[in-house]
């Protein structure tokens, strides 16, 4: 007997993922509820083995976007494709291959952990081993408990188990670690990373920016229905500059702080002292912080002083996120 897992013919449905293309494609998606436009022209792709994080303020349109992909909403305009097909109303050919952790829970409280998982397993097309999945989410010792006896974090882990049991190729995770303690969250991150490495295309929304930093290959930040920032984590952060900050020497007036090429200076009062922060956006990404710091050192030597509490750091996702969330005038860089 010869088993070849890599030579079976591709299905006839022109699934781009079969040929290494994206599993999920969203193009200029718009969603209206009456007069309210919840999503205003969102586009992205997710390839097998890739995790795309959709971040944003509450009401930014993230869940509406996911629900469109899950097949609960028909796009007002634009398109959504999963495995090359319209996912609306969960057609056969899509529904067996995708699964989700919903924003809320979705467990049958009167059933035990085992019974919930057993039901999902029996209904699935190609279920994974239930014991293995229970082990992955660390609920093996809770398996006989009714769901209503579980803590919030344990329920969330069971939600994830129910999504994993069908061995999906596309997985939508809508705030999957809400309510988990730090240890469980860490374990869940590892698990999601492993899923990604095994080739699952994953869409993640989260309010924990650290989660996106840890897991996302690419990310987008949504605000009021639009994507404002999109790219790889490094790419997104690069666009937002490096930050060099230090304690302003007491004998230097803020007006006398030097100008540095490609950087803007801001001064903040904190702990009864003044702090200068240079945001460096100009020049080569790799060298720009070095050049700015060199210029500042030279200035300090001329002044006969030192740069106390000197800190150099890249922009954090939080910096970017807060700028997007605060932005009302559309002053964000492209």
């Amino acid at each position: 007997m010869t088993t070849t897992a890599n030579t079976e013919p591709a299905a006839a449905n022109q699934d781009p993922a079969q040929t290494g293309g994206p599993s999920v494609v969203v193009r200029d998606l718009h969603q209206h509820y009456g007069d309210f436009e919840a999503v205003k022209g969102v586009s992205f792709e997710i390839r097998p083995g890739e995790l795309f994080a959709l971040l944003g303020t509450n009401g930014a349109g993230k869940t509406t976007t996911i629900e469109t992909l899950e097949g609960f909403r028909r796009p007002s305009s634009g398109s959504a494709r999963v495995f090359g097909r319209d996912p609306f109303d969960q057609p056969a050919g899509v529904r067996e291959r995708a699964n989700a952790v919903l924003q809320g829970s979705g467990l049958l409280d009167d059933l035990s952990v085992d019974e919930n998982l057993g039901l999902a397993s029996d209904l699935a097309a190609a279920p994974r081993d239930a014991d293995e999945v229970l082990g992955l989410v660390d609920l093996t010792d809770k398996r006989k408990l009714r769901v209503r006896q579980l803590s919030g974090g344990q329920k969330r882990r069971l939600d994830l188990a129910l999504a994993l049991i069908s061995d999906p190729e596309v997985l939508y995770l809508d705030e999957p670690t809400t309510g988990m303690d730090p240890e469980a969250r860490n374990e869940t991150w590892k698990l999601i990373s492993e899923l990604k490495e095994s080739g699952v295309a994953i869409l993640l929304t989260t309010h924990y920016l650290e989660e996106a930093e840890r897991l996302a290959d690419r990310l987008a930040i949504m605000h009021r229905g639009r994507v404002h920032v999109e790219g790889t984590l490094a790419g997104v952060l690069a666009g937002w500059g490096d930050r060099v900050s230090f304690l302003v020497p007491s004998d230097v007036r803020t007006a006398d702080l030097p100008e540095v090429d490609g950087a803007e200076v801001g001064v903040q009062a904190r702990d009864q002292a003044l702090w200068a922060t240079y945001t460096v956006t100009g020049g080569e990404v790799a060298d720009r912080a070095h050049h700015a710091v060199s210029a500042l050192f030279e200035w300090a030597r001329e002044q006969g002083t030192t740069l106390q509490h000197l800190q150099v750091r890249g922009a954090s996702l939080e910096d970017v996120f807060l700028r997007v969330a605060d932005d009302t005038a559309g002053t964000l860089p492209e």
């Binding site: 010869t2 088993t3 890599n6 030579t7 591709a10 097998p48 083995g49 190729e169 080739g199």
Partner: peptide, 21 residues
Amino acid sequence: MTTTTTPAPVRGAARTRTAPG
């Protein structure tokens, strides 16, 4: 028995799935 597996498989790419009906 010879088993050949793809080194870095595209998950489920070559799998056909049939739901229980």
